[in-house]
Design a protein around this nucleic acid. Structure first.
Length: 209
DNA sequence: TGCCAGGCCCTCTTTAGGGCCTT
């Protein structure tokens, strides 16, 4: 894995027709922001046609309607464009296993593959915001005092707010442990360790050990 | 349509079950 700053990543979010690409679900919207040294420097947002009508539940859940999807490009076209935006950078997503499954499934249809690393803001938040009432994106935005940038469950708004939650967690670690520079792979490691050992792990980073 | 998938995480656990997250 290329060692990159934790604040220099692509934060990604998909809206989809359901929960499982293996059972035929497809992406209908992708939203992503490019973070460079803690600032949003680029954005990517596209609606796309999944090839079939979406359910009323998804229309209601996302606010994306079948009418809105008429005339939009097919997933394959959008994913080819997004692959250039991504350029092998590391990814952050809220419940990243979900977005990664769709990313890989949709890229595969264009004979591409994602080879970068992926870190889950949900898993990190369970360790950094152990005091939050729950770890849904909407709750964390409120818990961290982050302003809403749009409608929840739309891809770009969710990607932007996930990015702000991500930066907020990094800032909390910095402030609490006096760590100047945090790397992506260190937060990736943090997302896997037992919650009981979070303090010990971050203290070791602060000490350079 | 949202019971459906998959992975994490807790506990009444580890030879398991169920809640939390994502759409």
């Amino acid at each position: 894995m290329r060692r990159s700053l934790a604040e220099s990543v692509v934060v990604l979010d998909f809206e989809t027709t359901g929960l499982s690409p293996q059972y035929g679900d497809r992406a209908i919207e992708i939203g992503a922001v490019l973070l460079e040294e803690g600032r949003i420097v680029d954005r990517f947002q596209r609606l796309m046609q999944p090839g079939f009508r979406i359910s009323r539940f998804i229309e209601s859940y996302t606010g994306i309607t079948n009418d809105m999807l008429k005339g939009q490009p097919r997933c394959e076209e959008v994913m080819a464009e997004f692959a250039e935006f991504l350029e092998g950078r590391n990814i952050v997503a809220h419940n990243a296993s979900f977005d990664r499954r769709f990313l890989e499934a949709e890229l595969k249809r264009t004979n591409r593959a994602y080879r970068g690393a992926c870190c889950c803001s949900l898993l990190v938040s369970r360790r950094i915001y152990q005091d939050a009432p729950n770890h849904r994106l909407q709750t964390l935005v409120s818990h961290a005092g982050i302003p809403r940038t749009g409608r929840f469950h739309r891809a770009l708004a969710d990607a932007e707010m996930t990015a702000q939650v991500w930066l907020s967690m990094i800032e909390r670690i910095r402030r609490q442990y006096g760590i100047k520079t945090i790397y992506f792979d260190q937060l990736s490691e943090l997302s896997k360790i037992d919650r009981l050992y979070v303090h010990r792990y971050l203290t070791s980073l602060a000490g350079g050990g």
